[in-house]
Amino acid sequence: MEIFRLKLLHDAWLIFQKDIRQEFKTRYSLNAIFLFALVTLVAVSFSIGTFTASADIKSALLWIIIFFSAMSGLSHIFVREEEKHTADTLKLVAQPTGIFLGKFLFNLFLLFVLELIIVPLYFAVMNFEVSGVAVFISVLLLGSLGLSAGATMTAAIISKASAKGALFAVLSFPILLPVIVAGINGTKIAVKQVAFAEAGSELQMLFAYSVVVITAAILLFDFVWNE
């Protein structure tokens, strides 16, 4: 059992590395997701100006930018395998759970890279200020965890269907909405409060959501992948 577990994590790590290498050959997802975020940020900033919007609106807009940028790039991880017909080979080399974890890690990494660039930019361009920096970062990290877990699973589902692009957002939105709502509320709280206890219920919900969704995804991924 111990060996199996290690092998699983090892598989996941190898697949993560493989996807990173493949990604940096073409930089397709990274370009798509980053440029989408940048365009949305510019559109938002240009249309509402720097000083007019309240902190509540700015918290919501940040999460909307992150969510739709994620929708533009996170599905590529499975769609690529189907389009290049590499999925069958991948089936031979690794366990489904290892594959899911590897792909999930990659999407999480992609989302972190995006946030590393877009969030400071958002703070600068939108004149956005938070008092509870630690609270804000925790909300962001836990939110990304839930977002990439849900999105990786729906990406696996839509990669087997036609009309992939449109379907991805349609299928992901209802599943990811708890993350967006809790993320927006957590950010609103972080704007005013420094203490963790103030955002306690939001952080708990984000964490519980991530755990539940990752567990369900690992259990269900087998069926989707071997279809």
């Binding site: 269907a161 209802p174 959501y209 069926f223």
Partner: peptide, 17 residues
């Protein structure tokens, strides 16, 4: 298969709402 998986996956996330 895919719609069953989606319906179970959605069912798991709905209690949050």
């Amino acid at each position: 298969v895919l719609s069953s998986v989606y319906s179970i996956f959605a069912f798991v996330s709905v209690p949050f709402f």
